[in-house]
């Protein structure tokens, strides 16, 4: 465990927490893509199937449980508790465009052809594209609430910190996980345009709105 990894996990946790705070405080999930949140719940579910079969550490178990809980509570907030505020007309990204290639690729490129490994691979590939319905929604409406942009910033920062963690692990342990690294790079690239807008607009006190 290195500093990049810890900061990455904390950034991920903060992102999910910020999203829940936004929904809970405003009693509204306006501007949030329910589709992205369903994909994240699916990512954690398929990745953490080893929760009961493969004990790694207290930290690992606790974080997995918290991530799963946050993901499911968020989906519950969007589709049940505050569904009247859910901006369904703008959440129109076609999920089959992500799911079909991701399912196909997880069968083609994986470490071992077993159900848990294929599902783990599926979760890694899916995570790299899961934010696209959310980014699509923002580009469609042309704006995002400031707290939503903080959520996106920490979610992107988490994967960028994991990239630093993988470089560190390669240097110190000679360890690398090709599937995670390639997907992590792709995932981080999707946030670059947003990072630019975040730094040039949100951090200068302006609302994120697209021309």
């Amino acid at each position: 465990m290195n500093v990049f990894r810890i900061l990455g996990d904390l950034s991920h946790l903060l992102a999910m927490f910020l999203l829940l705070v936004k929904i809970w405080r405003s009693k509204s999930c306006a501007g949030i893509s329910g589709k992205s949140q369903i994909l994240f719940a699916l990512v954690f579910t398929t990745r953490y199937l080893d929760l009961f079969s493969n004990f790694i550490s207290i930290y690992n178990t606790v974080m997995k449980v918290v991530f799963l809980l946050c993901a499911y509570v968020t989906v519950y907030m969007i589709y049940w508790k505050f569904r009247k505020t859910f901006d369904i007309e703008n959440d129109t990204f076609r999920l089959e465009f992500l799911l079909v290639p991701v399912i196909g690729l997880s069968f083609l490129v994986n470490y071992s052809y077993t159900p848990t490994e294929v599902l783990w691979t599926f979760s890694i590939y899916l995570e790299s594209v899961a934010i696209l319905p959310q980014l699509f929604m923002i580009s469609k409406t042309g704006e995002a609430e400031t707290i939503t942009t903080h959520y996106l910033f920490f979610l992107g920062l988490y994967r960028a910190l994991y990239l630093a963690n993988w470089i560190w692990r390669y240097q110190t342990e000679n360890f690398y996980d090709q599937i995670s690294v390639v997907s992590g790079v792709v995932q981080t690239i999707f946030y670059c345009d947003f990072f630019y807008l975040y730094v040039t607009k949100v951090l200068k006190g302006k609302k994120l709105s697209l021309p």
Partner: peptide, 10 residues
């Protein structure tokens, strides 16, 4: 060179 997946990462 190691080429395996990281079971300890989240």
């Amino acid at each position: 060179h190691a080429l395996h997946r990281s079971h300890d990462e989240l």
